[in-house]
Design a protein around this nucleic acid. Structure first.
Lengths: 226, 226
DNA sequence: CCGGTCTATTAAGAAATTGTGAACTTACCG
DNA sequence: CGGTAAGTTCACAATTTCTTAATAGACCGG
């Protein structure tokens, strides 16, 4: 599915470099785009929302360091990875780059192997930080990718609605969800079910978890508390 | 035995450099050997079969680039990693080095930290890429190159769709794949098949494997668990 | 304590989803 | 052309999940 494919934007003024990078990253299954100078890089980054931007340090209009600095001031790019391409292998420019907020640098001339494995490594690392929506609490973790809940290390299997209900509540601990909100989020705006249905599901979740983390707020709704 | 420890061969004509590299890599638990020129490097590489060779570009007898090129022509070294040591100033040699098939290079003067993390990173990456996508679990291995599956040492032949289905699920153990995802990945975005088709294939896989590693998540999809 | 309002619990059956065996279609190969 | 295997579909069985309805319990102000 294309929503899973990572997008990479390359900014460099040398078409040959773009070509070689583009080819190798496409081979790896990435979706790759390019820009030929700093200004274009910023424009395309805004429209494409890439996961990774590879910036040549030396570019017309705006150089890579400037582009990086600008991107880092914008929240839209707070999760965007940045790699610098540098012709200078000297440490001072490397340090400068990483200071500005880049995540890695690659020295020219480019080795496809190095490029690809650095890029892969960066995504791997980054993925570990963004754990795919898993909610973690002291004795409880909720993994939406696996539709799986762990309580004190013990696996608990919830049915679809039960899981979605728990996940909704746990996504904002402490916040009270109105019964209507719950209906809309878990059942859908148009589905009509009786009020007791929620109660029954809440009960099953409480039962299966074997711990008291869902609090009833009388006349209002439910909240997750831990 | 030391079969698990990675072997590293260093070739450099400066004893000081060898010393510093050797010390730091041994600290990391690697088994480290050395050679003082290009010829000796080739000889020792043949007898030691190291996992990684660190070559100084400037060496007597044969320089690093030559050694690398020779090694790359021999199948015995096709999985051997190569790192070049280059002097900072010497950019053109970097070009040659990466062209010749090296996997990374490190500039002198050497920073122990950089050295160690580059070496570790290289092994880390290589480990993940070296087995051609074969998935290995305790009682089960799945080889996509041969469309072959082994269960407890016994060969199991799966049909194309069956195999692709299993491989998809097993590629991310624990993760639930939605029926739609499965359809897109295994059948293709545009192919339209009935709902029961997936079930039937799942059943055949379960049947043939004779073990319970595919879990149904009702209303959601299937996942591989072991 | 009482009536009113809301939630908890339970069991039953309705609804949805998946499993299964058999039949059918298609593709391939000698 | 016939035989074999893969892939698909269908009808129905089996199972799980969801919903409801009925009843019991909790809470609150008067």
């Amino acid at each position: 599915m294309d929503t899973n494919r990572k997008r990479i934007l390359i900014a460099d003024d040398e078409p040959d470099i773009i070509e070689i990078i583009q080819y190798n990253l496409k081979q790896e299954g990435y979706e790759v785009f390019s820009a030929k100078d700093g200004d274009e890089a910023l424009v395309r980054a805004k429209e494409l929302k890439p996961d990774l931007v590879i910036l040549d340090i030396m570019m017309p209009k705006r150089n890579g360091v400037e582009v990086c600095r600008i991107m880092r001031t914008q929240t839209a790019f707070e999760n965007t990875l940045i790699i610098f391409l540098t012709a200078l292998s000297d440490e001072s420019s490397q340090i400068k780059g990483l200071d500005t907020g880049a995540d890695d640098y690659i020295s020219k001339p480019i080795s496809p192997k190095v490029l690809v494995s650095r890029v892969n490594a960066l995504f791997r690392r980054h993925k570990q930080e963004d754990n795919g929506g898993v909610l973690v609490f002291d004795q409880l973790s909720i993994d939406p990718q696996q539709y799986m809940v762990k309580v004190d290390g013990r696996d608990v299997t919830l049915a679809k609605k039960e899981f979605e209900l728990l996940y909704l509540l746990a996504s904002k601990p402490g916040r009270v969800f109105l019964r209507n909100e719950i209906l809309n989020q878990v059942w859908g705006n148009d589905v009509i079910v009786g009020d007791r249905t929620i109660d029954v599901h809440i009960r099953k979740v409480r039962q299966k978890l074997g711990m008291d983390c869902i609090t009833t707020v009388k006349g209002v709704g439910y909240k997750f508390d831990i």
